[in-house]
Design a protein around this nucleic acid. Structure first.
Lengths: 187, 187
DNA sequence: TTGTGCTTTCAGTTATTTGTGAAACTTGGC
DNA sequence: GCCAAGTTTCACAAATAACTGAAAGCACAA
């Protein structure tokens, strides 16, 4: 029973199919992540670019992103910068080149931290201001309805402030610590 | 020094102003909560109705909601039902009456629990499916790029599954327990 | 079974968000 | 300075989401 040594060519064969398959799965991921984005209240393109970069073997230029997703320069540019402002993507430059390349944060915990941070800043903090003002403006009211409203605002304020603080704390934990803590809680 | 007994009329006087003030503040709350809603990825009307009912002294009918927010019947109806499906509002009926009235959950922890539950169901679970499929489809790939992609999906899957479980656990805690736990964690 | 009071649906309209493409701007090298 | 490669902005167009109003549906009471 001859132990045949496979030819180099044959070793390469499955890789050809693999590349196609991978490209297809990746495309599916990008597309689905875009759909998800819309449900998350994030725009489709931004989510798609994020998915694309998260699964990119190396940093991509604006033109590469435009081509991969078949979108305009303006659109690519706006959303890349938005991702940068969320801290989910960073700009890298190659020396000797003027072009900017974009690279996504790939560590899931880090991604989670950044998103938590931004959502807190964009969703919780403004809400807090609103309820604070409403609570303040109704302080000391005499009627039952006034008191009820004031109490409701007070409870809301307390809770949102609390959630906000929790967000900060959780997001400031390093990956390892966080998991450790979570395990202890919910084993 | 005559201890004057205030007339009934005079006792009532500040209440008049209070009512107006309260109505104004409440309107502001409803309006602002609506703006917030759009940023949260929830539609404005739904958020406004929620704010309105949260601060309503008693259950309101569709017509009352329509009038308060100056919106159409269809719009009011759709969003009220949507709020019911989120578990943030419940339908109550008064005996002898055919009309439905709507009443919001007012306990902040309960509101939080319901929102967490729904967001998990609507945002996390579908994401989980996507990454699971992508991880599955690239299992055992040989190329570096295939392996990298597979690992990335694996990490994402693990994390999302974990977050999903955490959501369940947190949302299943009663108010008291949750606070206790949070305090222990973050003093 | 018919009328009445209310709920639900939906085709068409309106508002809002997102995307395009080209022009304006910036920056560094010659 | 002036060109070239690249980035940024923005008026307008396209796509999507939300809302309206009216008609259809339903269920109970007479």
């Amino acid at each position: 029973m001859g132990l045949t040594i496979p030819k180099f060519q044959d070793l390469l064969k499955p890789m050809k199919g693999e590349r196609d398959k991978l490209a297809a799965v990746r495309e599916e991921f990008v597309s689905q992540w875009g759909v998800m984005g819309t449900q998350w209240g994030i725009n489709r393109t931004m989510a798609q670019i994020h998915a694309l970069l998260m699964t990119a073997p190396e940093a991509m230029s604006t033109d590469e992103v435009m081509e991969a997703l078949e979108i305009s320069r303006g659109n690519a540019h706006t959303n890349l910068k938005e991702l940068v402002s969320w801290g989910l993507v960073r700009i890298v430059t190659r020396r000797g080149e003027r072009k900017e390349y974009f690279e996504a944060e790939k560590d899931v915990w880090e991604i989670f931290r950044r998103i938590t941070e931004q959502r807190k800043r964009r969703e919780l903090d403004p809400a807090l201001q609103v309820v604070e003002r409403c609570a303040e403006e109704t302080r000391g009211m005499q009627t039952k309805e006034g008191k009820d409203f004031h109490r409701q605002m007070g409870e809301l304020q307390e809770f949102v402030a609390f959630a906000s603080k929790m967000g900060d704390r959780v997001a400031s934990l390093p990956h390892g610590k966080a998991m450790q803590l979570a395990m202890k809680l919910f084993g």
